[in-house]
Computed example of a mutant assay.
Amino acid sequence: MQHAKYAFYVAVAVCLAPIGAAHAYDGANCKAPGNCWEPKPGFPEKIAGSKYDPKHDPKEIAKQQASIDSMEARNAKRVAHFKKSGKWVFDVDKIPE
């Protein structure tokens, strides 16, 4: 009984194998060997200067840099306190001046 069950699964796998192979990419649209990327329909080949070109707002970049600067200042304060006292305090507001 068990052999019939396994034989059925093998038969199904053999029958379905050509279906997967028929849908495989054949590489017909490759620009060069190994360079088979294609943009989706409606998406341009070149992004720069198109509506898909990301525009970075200088104000948003400045916000990120300000955040990084304040993080580094807090970390420097934590490290200085740790070197002086030997105790690590995460909350910078609890570090005595």
Score class of each variant (00 low, 15 high):
I61M: 10
K40P: 02
S50Y: 07
A32K: 08
K46D: 14
Y25K: 11
F82W: 07
A7Y: 06
F43D: 11
K63I: 01
N75V: 05
A22M: 15
K40Q: 15
A32R: 07
W37S: 08
R74C: 03
Y25M: 13
E60M: 03
P58A: 04
D53G: 01
A7S: 13
H56Q: 09
D26E: 15
K51R: 13
V12W: 08
C15G: 08
H23Q: 15
K63L: 06
Y9E: 13
Y6F: 13
F8P: 00
F43H: 13
P41G: 05
F8C: 07
A22G: 06
S70K: 10
G34K: 03
H81P: 00
A11K: 05
A48I: 04
H56R: 06
Y6Q: 13
C36E: 03
A76Q: 06
R74D: 12
Q65F: 05
D26T: 10
S70G: 02
G27Q: 10
S67W: 08
E45K: 14
H23P: 00
G20K: 03
D69K: 01
I68Q: 08
S70V: 07
H23S: 14
K31T: 10
V14L: 12
G42R: 08
G27R: 09
I68P: 00
V79I: 14
P39A: 08
H81K: 02
K46S: 14
P18F: 05
A11L: 11
H56I: 09
D53W: 03
A80Q: 09
S67T: 05
Q65N: 03
P33Q: 04
E45R: 12
G34V: 04
K59I: 06
C30S: 12
P44S: 12
N35W: 06
D69T: 04
D69M: 02
S70N: 06
A32V: 03
E38A: 08
C36H: 04
I61L: 09
P33S: 04
V14D: 14
K55R: 06
